[in-house]
Each structure stands twice: as C-alpha cells, then as structure tokens.
Design a binder for these strands. Structure first.
Lengths: 211, 211
DNA sequence: CGCCGCTTGTGAAATCCTTCACAAGTTAGG
DNA sequence: CCTAACTTGTGAAGGATTTCACAAGCGGCG
C-alpha cells in the first residue's frame, strides 16, 4: 500500500488534519470523504485515494471516525510527537516564526536560537538565550536538535546548512532564496516569498488576458 | 502556444529569472538551457518546454540572450511593473514582510498598512501610518491597491478578504491558515508554515522507515 | 432476516506533466 | 561555400496523478 507518495497528497493530508481538528471541536463522531473534500477544495475520490496510500481507515456506509483518523494522520505526518527545533537567524523572519502561535501548539519546540549579530548574542527571547554561531555544531548536537529553521541572508545559508547537517540534524525549513546543497538523506522544505508573489502577479496578469 | 500553464512551470520561471539576474551581474551575454537547468535543479528539456509555453526566445546553436530572456520572463510573470500592495495585519509576520529586502526591490510597493490593534493605529512604520480597519474599503480603493498581503489571525482573515475584494483588489497573498472563499476571478496564493513543517516531518519520518 | 441507502476502497481510464529524441537553425572555421 | 560543433523547439513516448465507476461492506428498519 505505501509506495512513493505524491507531494500534493502530503499537502492535502495536512489540510484534512486541520479540518478534522475543527470537526473534533464541533462534537461530530464521523465524517465522509465527501465532507472532507468540501472543506479541502478537492474531491471525495481524491480524499479516499490519498488515504488509501496508507491503509484503509474508514467504514463503508459510515465514513471515518474523526478521532481515529486524525490520530492516524498525525502519525503519518510525524506530528504525533514533539520535534526539537533550532532557529538559525534571529532577524525579522526568525522572530515572526518564534512567536507564531501555531508553532509550539503543534509539537515544534524551539530549544535554541542562533544569530551572528554581536548585539543580539547573549540577549534573551522569552527564556531562550541567543547564541553566536561559533559553537553551533556542539550546541545542536548536545540539545538533540532534529530540525533547523534557516532564516538567515542568502549568503550565509549554505554554510549554516552544512554545519547543521554535520551536527546531525534531520531536516531543514529554508527561508533563504537559494537552493541548499545538502546530502540526499536530509530533506529540505523551501519557503520563498518572492516566488509566491510572482506566482500571484502571474495569475493576476494571466487572468486579465484570458477570462 | 499559451494554453493552461502548470503551476510548477511558474515556480521554475521564477527560478530562471533569479538565475538570469545572477548571470547578468557576471557579465555573460548568453546562456544555454543546459546551464539554466543546472542552476535550477531541473533538466535542459524542461527549461525549453517551460519557455516554449510562451514563445521561442532562443537562438539555435547559441542559446538565450540573457538580457532579453530576463526581460521576457519579467513580463510573463507580471513583474515588469510596480504593484501597489496593502499589508493587512501589522503583527510579527506583517513586520517581517514589511522589512523584507527583496520585497521593495522587486517591484512590490507597500502603500498602506492596516491593523485593528488600537495601540498600533496612528503609529508609523517608516513613513507609513497604520490605519484601523474601519475605512479599509475606501482606503484601498483611493490608493489604487491591487494586491493584499493578509497576515491576520485566522478568525479575521475571511472578513478582511471579502472587504478587500469589495475594494477592488486583484489578488491576495494569504498567511492565515484557512481556505479563503473569494470570487473565482481573484487569485489567492497561500503560505502555510504549519503545512511546510508537516511536509518536513513527514519526509524525515518516511526517510527513517524506508531508506 | 433481508432489503435499502449510504459510503468506502480500488482497478481502469483519462488527464496532466516530464523526458526523450531528433530535425532544423546558427555560428565558426577552413 | 562547406563542414563541424552546438543548441533550440517540439512531436511523441513515458510516467505520474487525478478522476471515474462500481463491487463490496455496513447499519437501520420493517
């Protein structure tokens, strides 16, 4: 049942999980693929196909038990546990992420902040002291950091990524607008705001010319 | 030549544009699809197919004239002009975006900031005064805002989106973790950090179990 | 208990996207 | 002018993802 999973399926799984959490709050017991599809901007067949990659969690005639399916999705997405995160780069984006409410509430725990600005090193964000980049490797290794959020300028990103990998981290969320070169076993997820804006202006421009 | 364009093509076009800008700086005159592919984590055939959706910009045997192709890409992506942007939500994410250097330098001009926090209304970010949400429609319409960056909490997002659409805006970059319901002619680009983190933890988890 | 209405899980078909392969255009050089 | 070395643009092939369509399982009710 589990072969290579399309990236689009994973994105939708995240959506389904969010919808299930809403439904959980509203007291229902079960949900059909039809309703999940409605909330997720997709089709019932797509929902069932997505889930079928990982097993069969529903009951014919009834639908999916909400509590069970959300637990299962959390497991599949790997968010049924707490991830230790280091934030590298304590600039604007870093601070925005640090204060992002969904962040901690969803099992991502920031255990280290690193920045190269001497004015910031030694100061505190909440309980966390900001470290300089010198002892990055040992710091990450000692704290058991698994996941790094890279929010540094493009020119520093590759070096920080390499050093994080050397410290044994398992994945990178990258905000720098460059393609990081890392070993194949370290997944990188890119967030590129300029790209999103360009996709938007393309869509708008396109729309005008072809209704 | 121009039918429905894959979203992945648009993302790659953004990449090519960035590579071309690097190349422009380094003084070369032309570039081959091969080299563009190298820098973009794709293949030469893909580069040519992507470009062929919009016309033929190269010369056989020579490649693409860098200056010409980047101008053409800017036109295709709709960034050969300045977009007037309003920032709705002056919290952490809003401030990070406002200060994002690539932002202004790429033709996005923030002409209004709106927030509902009474403590912020009336204060200034750089030269821009923060407005309350009451006169949102007239403000956006008067300034000729075309593009809205929505960086407000989920519960406020739908209302702000609807009011922006009523003010005549043409597209939304949405940071709120909900699916906005807007008329079909208004493109929405979603940036969902939780989703990115979940994709990452899935990839890591997956990796452990299936090498 | 048997039938009905509902909903899943899944092969098969259709659609969408990427890769291949090559004819044809371009420049350089003799 | 002719050949060699490159490189594009593009049909056709191949692969991946989505949609379709339906057999099969489940619960409720008479």
């Amino acid at each position: 049942m589990t072969r290579r999973i399309p990236a689009s399926t994973i994105r939708r799984l995240s959506h389904y999980l969010r919808s299930l959490e809403d439904l959980e709050a509203s007291g229902d017991e079960t949900v059909s693929s039809e309703e999940l599809a409605l909330r997720g901007q997709t089709t019932a067949a797509q929902v069932r196909k997505d889930l079928s990659h990982f097993g069969s969690f529903g009951k014919r005639g009834l639908g999916y038990r909400i509590e069970e399916l959300s637990a299962r999705l959390r497991q599949i997405l790997g968010v049924d546990r707490v991830w230790k995160v280091a934030l590298i780069g304590a600039g604007r984006i870093g601070s925005a992420l640090f204060e992002y409410p969904a962040f901690e509430s969803r099992g991502y725990e920031c255990v280290a902040i690193i920045d190269s600005d001497p004015a910031k090193i030694g100061t505190y964000w909440s309980e966390l002291q900001i470290h300089g980049p010198d002892d990055l490797e040992s710091l990450l290794a000692e704290l058991g950091v698994e996941l790094v959020i890279l929010a540094v300028p493009a020119r520093a990103a590759q070096e920080m990524a390499e050093r994080s990998v050397r410290a044994g981290i398992k994945g990178i969320l990258n905000f720098a607008p460059i393609r990081l070169k890392v070993p194949r076993h370290v997944p990188v997820e890119d967030v590129n705001l300029v790209m999103e804006l360009e996709a938007l202006s393309f869509a708008i421009t396109q729309h005008g010319s072809e209704p």
